[in-house]
Structures are given as structure tokens and as C-alpha cells.
């Protein structure tokens, strides 16, 4: 068969676009970081970064650890950090944790908990307002990041098909000095020309996999054999996680899928083809537009 002269496979097209966006981000933002939630989407994004930069990841990864993450997530994170020699930064809301002002401690609502342990911790970590920790490969452990400075470009792995508010995002989405997202006054974005200019004290969120669907992500994981945290697969109990988060607020779904191929099948034709992905996430349901309110305030 003659060699194809253009990209035809939707996955190839998505990949090419994501790489283009990642390279744009790397070119324009001196202080650039990538949010890595350990979930499948941002792990695919991390893999795409290695593709874009020929096996390197030339910027740090940022993880907001609520301390309520499922333990396997943290194990997997640190293993990948070692295997792929990643620059890894971890941030958290130490004050709320110390005062036990969290939902699992029973003191505040789910949304308030997300607001503190995720949104506010993220905001402070990005601005370098609170201590953050960096993985020291020579010591093989996390140490306080002494050279912490604020990020002007933050790459995030959100997808437009996840839920309503994310479908309105841009690839390059400005945040003002208060970390807020102004949905109504977003700049236009067209012809692969993005918002790469920004005023002092503002920063830009960059969304390289905005156009990917949950199915695309799993098909890509299957095709490229990208290592995933084991929580996504049934370990014998007949359940697995479809979306990862903090253990008090995230529930596994009933499924016996043990491989990406089986998950792809499940999403295409099986029982999940008609059920929203985040249906296992409790915070989306607390109030009709809860996630939208969180997003405007800086939530991923």
C-alpha cells in the first residue's frame, strides 16, 4: 500500500494538535509547569509532552496532594517520576490539613473541601505562596523547593467532553491576578493562533487535550501502551475506578475490565457508553453548577 500523505486517524490528528499546543506553550512561557493529577488524562498529556520534546519533559510537573488521594496513586506517581526522570513538584494546603478543616474530618462540606485542598492549594502552589516540595533524584525523596517562583503558564489536562463548563474552555485560557476565569470575556482563538501574550500578574492555563474524549484517551493508552495506575483496572473484586480523585469522594464502578482494550470496548459498546464519566464524583452533584463555580475560582 502506498504511504499515506496526510493524517487520517483521529488519534493521530489529536496527537499532532496536542503536540503543537505543547510546543507553543514551551516557546512562549518562561515559567511553565504541567499539572499532573496522576489520572489517565494528564498522564496521556505527560506522554504527549515526551513525544513533543523527543523523550524529554523540559518543565516541572505539579501535583496537588490533598493527602486523601488513594495510596496507589502516590506510589505510581513516584515510580513514574523515577522511571521518566521527571521534575516533580508537590503542593498542599497544610493549614487546613493541620486544623483538620476537611470534609473527611467532618468539619466542612465537600465543595468547601475541594475549594481548600484543591483550588486554594493549587493557587498557592502556582504562586509559590506556600511551601512546595520537589523530588530530589539524587536523594530519592521530596525536599522543600528553595527556588520556588510563580508560574506564568500552567498546562492542564482538561477535556471539553467531561462536563459543561469545560466545554467552553479555550486551548490558551487566561486567568487574572486572582486566578479567576472570566467565561464571558474570553479572547477569540482561531487559526492555531493562541493567547500567548499576557499582562503582568496574570497567567495562562494551557489545555493541550481539550478536544480529546474519554474514549480517545483510552484508545491512545491502548495504542501507545502508556503505563497507568492500577486503580483503573479490576484487580479481582469486580470493580475499578473510572475517574480518580480523593478516596472519600470517589467511588469505583462495577466493571471487570482488566486492560485498556477491555475498557475501550466497554466505552464503545458496553455499559458505560451512555453514562457520564464523572458520575462517580460526588462534588459535581452537590449543587447544579458546583464545578463551574469551582472552575471560575481556579479549580482544574
Amino acid at each position: 500500500m502506498a504511504e499515506e500523505t496526510k493524517l487520517n486517524d483521529p488519534l493521530d490528528k489529536l496527537e499532532a494538535q496536542s503536540i503543537f499546543i505543547l510546543r507553543e506553550a514551551y516557546h512562549h512561557f518562561k515559567s511553565l509547569g504541567m499539572l499532573w493529577s496522576i489520572g489517565k488524562d494528564s498522564t496521556v498529556m505527560l506522554y504527549l509532552a515526551r513525544k513533543a520534546f523527543l523523550g524529554h519533559v523540559p518543565f516541572p510537573l505539579i501535583h496537588i496532594d490533598t493527602q486523601f488521594k488513594i495510596p496507589e496513586m502516590i506510589e505510581y506517581r513516584d515510580q513514574m517520576v523515577r522511571d521518566w526522570k521527571l521534575q516533580m513538584i508537590v503542593g498542599k494546603d497544610q493549614v487546613s490539613l493541620d486544623n483538620k478543616e476537611t470534609f473527611p474530618d467532618g468539619k466542612i462540606s465537600r465543595l468547601d473541601c475541594c475549594q481548600r485542598l484543591k483550588s486554594s492549594a493549587l493557587k498557592n502552589t502556582l504562586a509559590a505562596d506556600t511551601d512546595r516540595y520537589i523530588f530530589d533524584h539524587s536523594l530519592d525523596k521530596y525536599v522543600i523547593d528553595k527556588n520556588a517562583s510563580s508560574f506564568t503558564g500552567v498546562i492542564a489536562g482538561i477535556r471539553a467532553d467531561e462536563e459543561g463548563s469545560r466545554s467552553k474552555e479555550r486551548y490558551f485560557s487566561p486567568r487574572n491576578e486572582k486566578n479567576q476565569w472570566k467565561v464571558g470575556s474570553q479572547p477569540p482563538e482561531f487559526w492555531s493562533q493562541y493567547k500567548t501574550e499576557f499582562a503582568p500578574d496574570t497567567h495562562v492555563r494551557i489545555h493541550p487535550i481539550l478536544d480529546w474524549t474519554e474514549l480517545n484517551v483510552w484508545e491512545y493508552i491502548q495504542r501507545e501502551k502508556i503505563p497507568m495506575v492500577s486503580l483503573y483496572f479490576d484487580q479481582g473484586a469486580g470493580t475499578r475506578y473510572r475517574s480518580l480523585g480523593c478516596y472519600p469522594c470517589t467511588n469505583p464502578v462495577e466493571s471487570t475490565s482488566t486492560t485498556p482494550a477491555e475498557i475501550v470496548q466497554e466505552l464503545k459498546a458496553g455499559k458505560f457508553s451512555q453514562i457520564a464519566e464523572r458520575s462517580g464524583r460526588a462534588q459535581d452533584k452537590e449543587d447544579g453548577g458546583g464545578l463551574e463555580a469551582l472552575r471560575r475560582d481556579g479549580y482544574m
Binding site: E3, K6, L7, D12, I19, L54
Partner: peptide, 14 residues
């Protein structure tokens, strides 16, 4: 990446 080489770049490819 992760393969070593391509011989050819197509329309649309990064």
C-alpha cells in the same frame, strides 16, 4: 519518540 526514526512526515503531523 518513542520509536527511533521516521522516513516521512505527512500533512497535519507535528
Amino acid at each position: 519518540y518513542p520509536n527511533q526514526q521516521k522516513s516521512f512526515g505527512k500533512t497535519g503531523e507535528s
